[in-house]
Structure formats: C-alpha cells, structure tokens
Design a protein around this nucleic acid. Structure first.
Length: 615
RNA sequence: GCGCCCGUAGCUCAGCUGGAUAGAGCGCCGGACUUCGAAUCCGUAGGUCGUAGGUUCGAAUCCUACCGGGCGCGCCA
C-alpha cells in the first residue's frame, strides 16, 4: 500500500488519504496537468452513488475550459484499471462515483485484524504536545465544571498519543493566588482544626465562603488577606506550612476522583510551580516595551502595540485585540501576580523544558479572551518562536480547545435543587446507581449474563462510561445538556449500546465450535452480502477517523463512528448468520465480528471507557 | 462599546477542507423472537437549515448586515 511519503506516516494505511492520492494522480495523468490537483474526494451520502466520489473534475473543468463530463469520463476510465476500484462511473454534472473492490476491502480488513493497532498508522515523527486539562482548584471539591475538561482532555491525550505524538498530560492545578490569602486568614478566624482533620475539603470550602463574604464587607479583613498572600508568596514558613497542608489534603480527594474516572496525568505542575518565574516574565514584558505601568498595575494595552512588532501572519489576531480597551493585567497594583502571569511563565517552561511543539488547553470557552491575550503576549515575547538557547524551532502552536457549559433540564447551567454546584462525586454516584438499577431490571427480565458478584463493578463501568460518552459524543463547542434518561437509556447513541455490542460479538465466539479466541483470531475477509460490505466499509475507515479526531481535537468523531459501526454490526448480525457450516464464509464472518469487537473496544478505550465481557 | 460561541425535525444533536434528494437518536405510529442474545432489528410520519443579501457551476457550510439566545472584557482563577 502506498499512502506514505510526504504524509510523514509509516507503513499502514489511511483509506481516504490513499484514495485521495490515487484520485489526484489519476486526475493529473489523465488530464495532462502540470501540478497535482485536489481530487476533492468525499464519501458518498447515498450508496447508490457508490462508496466515494471525486468532485475535482467539475472544479477543474472551468479552469481548463473543457466540459466537466468529458474530464470526468477520462478519469473514470483510468481509475477502473486500479485494483482498489471495482467500478468508476460519471454521474450528474461530472462527479466520478467510485465503488471499491470487495476483495480489496476484505484484504484491508484482514490486515487490520492482524495488526495490533487495527490498521492505524503511527506517526514516524510525532510532535511533542503538552495538553493542559482538568486543572481544578485546591481547597475545592471537584464539580461538574471540571467534568468536561477532565473527560475531553483525557480523551484528547489518548488520541494524540495513539496516533504517535509524544504527549504530556499536565494538571495545571489552581494552587496559588488570591484565594490562599483568604483561606489563611479565614482559617485563623473561623477554622475548626477537628473539622479540617475529618473532612478537609468541606472545611476549607466553609472557611473560604465565610472569609470571602467577610472580605467583601470588611476592608481591613480584605487587606489582611492580601498581606497573607504576600507573605505566602514571599516564602514565609508558617504561611507556607498551612498552604502545604491545604494542598496535601486536597490532593488526596482529587486522587480519589481521578481514580473513579480512570484518569491520570504525566505532570502536576500547578500555578505555584511557576511562582519563581513570574517576576522575570513581568520584567521581560517591561524590558521589551510590551507592558507598562498604569494606576500601579503592570498592563499590556493592545491598542499600543506598534504594527511593526506584530509577526507576519498574526495581524488579524492583534487587530482584534487592539479593539479591546481594557488592558491585560499581568501584575496587580499591590504587587501580586495573576494567572495571566503564570500562564505566560507556563508557556515559556513548556517550550524550554518540554520543547513542546504544541501547547493545548482544554478549558471552558468562557476563557477564550484570556487565552487570546496570553497567546498574543507569548507571541510578542517570542516564547512561541525559538527555544531557550535561541535556536530557532518551529513555532510552538498554541491551541485553546474550548468547550461549552453543562446545562441542566431547564437549559441553564446545571445546579442542585438548592442552587449549589453539583459535585463530581454525587454525579458519579448517581450514574452508578442508575446503572445498577438497570442491571437489576435486566436480571428480572432474565436477559442478563452478568454474575451477581460482578454487578457492582459492571455498574461502575457502565455508569461512569455513560457519563463520559454522553459528554464526548457531542461536538465539544456547544453547550451540553445533561440528561440522565438519555445517558443511561441503553439504546440509541449511548455507551451501553456500544458495550452491549462488544458483548454480543464476544458471545458469538463463545458459541463457536472449537477453542476460538477473539483476541488472536485471524482469517480472510470476503465480503459478499450487502450487510457485510456495509460493515467492512466502516471498519476500514477507522484510521482516518482516529487521525481526524486527534488532529482536530474532536473526540465526537470517534463516538459517531463507533455508533455507526455498532449499528452496522447489528444489521449484519440480523442479516447474516455467522456460525454457518460453509467454512470460508464462517471464517470471514468471524473475522468481521472480531475486528468489530476490537475496534469498538479500542475506540472506547481511547475515550476512556471500559467494556464488560458478558452483559 | 468591543469581542467570542450558538441558532438544523416536537425534543437532544450530527453534518468533516463548499458537492447530488439535509442525516441520526429519542418520542409517535406500524411490523419482526421454533434459527448465533429482542438491552436488538426493519419500516412510516416529521425540516422556509434564524432572516436578507453576496461569492460560486454548486452554500446548512464561505463573506456582509440584521434578528434571537448564551458568555466574556482593570487589578478572581
């Protein structure tokens, strides 16, 4: 197979990229063009148009001043000779409809089944990518607000890593800043040592609320909080010891949450880690004439950045910011730093320490302006342009992977009955309870194959998986409406359906004669029946789907594919009996079944969702 | 005032670098269990793609304006 070369990928094969390449080459040769055109290969919407269509001939016709139909006919004729193509025909104004060769598709599927990556090529030269996700605050319980960043971020890390990038998943903890001044003075005024011992986070949250309210009404109190923060940031041992206590106790609770979610990080570089670098960053900005003092604070006024300082290609970014009247504050008038400063220091560190090619932030869309400003400042400082020793490197790409808000039934940001944030723990509890209730229901109907001793574990896999899947299945950019019934419905586009299909696939292998193992099964795939062909066509698209989901940071592409695959398998299962006497047919169908199960399991694993052998 | 996101079927959402008659799920209605698991499958109905212009052979998709909803913008993160 020859979809290699300039793409930077190794041996295996992206089907759509491969077809686009041969289509473009054919177009060029058949029409005698100097350059390789874009074939505009698309999958067809309707099977009657074949599997794929080439739209490039229409686009070229105008340029060449020749009738599109004539060009398309030449291309179709040439493509018929390719072993991949069973048929190529001209349709409509000049579309070339392609029907892929069934035997060729079958070989692709067989190869994928024999490959532990299921046919997904691995980048020969991946980039180093730091993915910043989850990033909760110290002294606060995790709540739904952290859910999306954690789930989407973890999936993106896995996807990028799977396609072959070097990925650093970083939990950029909110462990430094104004809140700690309040917490320290609050602890002295309202703190309860016993309560802190018993349930640290609840006590810290209680104290924080009291202190925050008091500070709003009492200027002296607020001043003492600021003084405490200054002491902490200056390294005062007593303040430091208290802070460390806050961090340690919170960390324990966070670890428990992440364990339930099955999420882990490569680094936990919180804001405090960057504290020693903050003064230097501010100085750099001042020295470079990018920032200046205003009303005691150090600020960047975007309208004041001279045009000649804006790197080529960044004009639009800076023109937009220039309309922003309010400055980007990097140091407060009381001398304290802000998260703007630490985010800049973080970028510098990621470039210098990790030599990152990309820095990706999986953060709520509401922070868009903040990141726009951080990125702009970093570009002006050259953080995104060269490494620490001044050696030019490819510019570090800066990417805010934003996502919408989690909404409740009423279409407003989700809250509990009494208006508080929904905690992550209570959410997961409910998911597991609902999953368990369904397991009981199915057991009552006699259609369950999970032994009772495993119900709890199964409820965990199903419940947590459903929460994750519901979040990931939607385009992350839009707000996400949280709906328990949809999520645990066990039908439609939800994870239990996918998990169920895996169990169904496995069950076929259980029923097969002999000692067949799904994991190690291999056989020639020879699709003939329409349902088999429909299934194979989806199976061989998998590499393209994974690659696109990773590079566009859109895990819902994976969900969509898995759901289509599960549906196609279900159709295949209904139409085609797998365990038939005809050996080549049986083997081929078993191979299709095994590949489907493996692809579903791999896909779910990349999304952070587990499966159950029998359901 | 400036900026960002969103507007597609009754509801929840897809629609990838523009491509043929705009797709799913749920819900509704109607079918399919003596055959590898009916937690399944098949079918019917349902849409002026917010509005109006523009670019194009071709627009839900790109551009402009407007309407409607959400959000963000000096010393929180």
């Amino acid at each position: 197979m020859d979809a290699r070369g300039a793409s930077g990928y190794g041996a295996a094969m992206f089907l759509e990229r491969h077809l686009a390449t041969i289509a473009a080459q054919t177009l060029q040769e058949a029409l005698g063009l100097d350059e390789t055109p874009n074939a505009l290969l698309r999958s067809t919407q309707d099977p009657k148009f074949g599997d794929y269509q080439i739209n490039g001939a229409i686009a070229l016709a105008k340029k060449l001043g020749r009738p599109p139909h004539e060009l398309a006919a030449k291309v179709a004729e040439a493509l018929k000779a390719r072993p991949e193509i069973a048929d190529a025909s001209v349709a409509g104004p000049g579309f070339v409809n392609l029907t892929l060769d069934a035997a060729w598709l079958g070989r692709l599927a067989s190869d994928a089944l024999a490959d532990e990556r299921l046919g997904v090529p691995s980048l020969t030269e991946g980039e180093t990518i730091v993915v910043d996700f989850s990033s909760p605050n110290i002294a606060k319980q995790m709540h739904v607000g952290h859910l999306r960043s954690t789930i989407i971020g973890a999936a993106i890390v896995k996807l990028l890593r799977f396609v072959g990038h070097e990925v650093v998943g970083d939990n950029h903890l909110g462990d430094w800043g104004t809140q700690f001044g309040l917490l320290i003075v609050g602890m002295r005024s309202f703190g309860d040592a016993a309560a802190l011992e018993a349930d640290a986070i609840s006590e810290l949250e209680r104290v924080y609320r009291l202190a925050s309210d008091r500070a709003k009404a009492d200027e002296d109190f607020a001043a003492s909080a600021r003084a405490e923060l200054a002491k902490l940031q200056a390294g005062d041992p007593e303040s430091r010891a208290l802070w460390e206590r806050f961090v340690a106790t919170t960390r324990g609770a966070l670890d428990r949450s992440y364990a339930r979610l099955g999420v882990s990080f490569d680094e936990w570089l919180g804001e405090s880690f960057y504290d020693p670098m903050l003064a230097g960053v501010v100085q750099e900005l001042l020295d470079a004439g990018i920032a200046r003092e205003d009303d005691g604070a150090i600020c960047i006024f975007w309208g004041e950045i001279p045009k000649e300082r804006v790197p080529a290609g960044e004009e639009k970014r800076f023109a937009k910011l220039a309309k922003q009247k309010e400055p980007f504050i990097i140091r407060k008038k009381d001398g304290a730093f802000l998260y703007s400063t630490s985010d800049l220091a973080t970028l510098k560190y990621r470039r210098d320490h990790f030599r990152a090619d990309r820095s990706v932030y999986v953060v709520d869309a509401r922070q868009a302006l903040h990141f726009e400003q951080v990125f702009a400042a970093a570009i002006l400082l050259g953080y995104a342009g060269a490494d620490a020793d001044g050696r030019p490197v490819a510019r570090m790409q800066l990417q805010h992977v934003h996502f919408g808000t989690v909404l409740g039934d009423d279409g407003k940001p989700i809250k509990t009955r009494d208006g508080k944030a929904v905690t992550l723990a209570s959410l997961l509890d409910e998911a597991e309870e609902r999953a368990l209730a369904l397991i009981r229901e199915k057991a009552g109907e006699g259609s369950l194959r999970i032994p009772e001793a495993e119900w709890e574990e199964a409820a965990r896999v199903i419940g947590v998986g459903a929460v994750k899947y519901a979040d990931l299945a939607q385009n992350r950019a839009s707000d996400y409406r949280f709906d328990w019934d949809k999520l645990i419905s066990f039908k439609g586009n939800a994870s239990p359906y996918l998990q169920y299909m895996v169990a169904r696939c496995r069950s076929i292998f259980e029923n097969a004669a002999g000692d067949l193992r799904l994991e190690s099964f291999s056989a020639d795939v020879r699709p003939e029946h329409p349902a088999e062909l429909a299934l194979v066509r989806l199976l061989v698209r998998w590499p393209d789907v994974v690659e696109r989901a990773a590079e566009d940071y859109l895990p819902h592409y994976v969900c969509e594919h898995l759901y289509e695959l599960a549906s196609a398998f279900s159709g295949f299962y209904t139409e085609c009996k797998v365990l038939v006497d005809d050996e080549p047919v049986r083997e081929s169908r078993l191979a299709l079944t095994a590949l489907t199960a493996k692809q579903l399991e791999l896909g779910l694993a990349l999304l952070g969702i587990g499966t159950i052998a029998k359901m």
